[in-house]
Design a protein around this nucleic acid. Structure first.
Ligand code: FES
Ligand code: FES
Lengths: 162, 162
DNA sequence: TAATTACGGATATATTGTATCCATAAGGAT
DNA sequence: ATCCTTATGGATACAATATATCCGTAATTA
């Protein structure tokens, strides 16, 4: 089990957008070149973000994407779920009901399986962790990781493209 | 991203074994019939559990599997990792280094990407949650969920097969 | 009008998950 | 000794998903 590449791409794209003025837009082409990933496929991830209301896309020249909400109102979970979906990472197929000595209409079918409950609880812990980090919080981490020069250089490169 | 069916099967098989006397063994065929899953494919999951030292398999008639350790020394994480592997659910492909305006030999390459660190932290939260539940703890939950009659009926069916 | 963009559908390929089959070695029953 | 049953591991086939590309459309700007 492994998350899609799209997740890494989407997170980085959102992080980049969070570092720019809110009204500035970046095109799919610029974002693809900046991250060195195929433009056509990245477009699918950006469309998913757009449909989820995380970014806003506009048509025409000088069009592109910007964040649809303030950076402190977008969590990592929002982005991951937009690309990866909201279904639990654990799928219960109810094999407990295949039990050959189980009586039909037993009253043990009203509650979810104990195994599934534990797995879903772990899934929620994963989501809680991602829900705790906003793009604004990540920008603060990034500011400590990278030197101001590197950040400014990236910023200028992106703004010169659009 | 979704976990394999094997995970659900492996967890249920271990839960079944935990409800039996430690020296009793169950064959792949019995476990497959009990859960209504293909015997040949379930065998692969049991082999993974065997190789991870969670269950112990013996050959010959009256052979089969038993837990290799006490039930309070086997966590859900042990079982999930045996089947699903231990790699993180998030794979970083280092797209940050594809940055076209990045200078070679920059000092920002010594640390893992901030995005990856956040994703790996969430992965650890998921694992921590699974690490907190042992087969013994699950057995206690099961005892509250199911009626003693159902548990005993299953127990007898399994013991009569082996 | 022409160029550029997001958007969505269709398609192709690669990777992974699912499932089955078979050969082998080992243990128990006769 | 012989036969049956079992786990083990390799090989193979099939299905589902991930990855990637292509193209047509509509909207926007110059
Ligand atoms: S029946 Fe699906 S996890 Fe128990
Ligand atoms: S480069 Fe892989 S997560 Fe940032």
């Amino acid at each position: 089990m492994i998350l899609r590449n799209q997740v890494e791409w989407a997170l980085h794209c959102c992080a980049v957008l969070a570092g720019l003025p809110q009204d500035r837009r970046l095109s799919t082409r610029t974002l693809a070149e900046f991250h060195g990933v195929p433009k056509e496929y990245l477009s699918k991830a950006l469309q998913a973000l757009s449909q989820a209301g995380i970014v806003s896309g506009t048509l025409g020249p000088a069009g592109g994407y910007r964040l649809a909400r303030p950076a402190d109102d977008i969590t990592f979970l929002d982005i991951v779920e937009a690309v990866e979906g909201r279904r639990s990472t654990f799928a219960c197929t109810n094999i407990r009901f295949n039990n050959p000595c189980r009586q039909p209409c037993a009253d043990d079918g009203t509650k979810a399986c104990s195994v599934a409950r534990i797995m879903w609880q772990a899934d929620e812990a994963w989501r809680d962790s991602l829900r705790g980090i906003t793009l604004a919080a990540h920008a603060a981490i990034l500011a400590k990781d990278l030197s101001p020069e590197v950040l400014e250089r990236n910023r200028q490169w992106l703004l010169s493209r659009g």
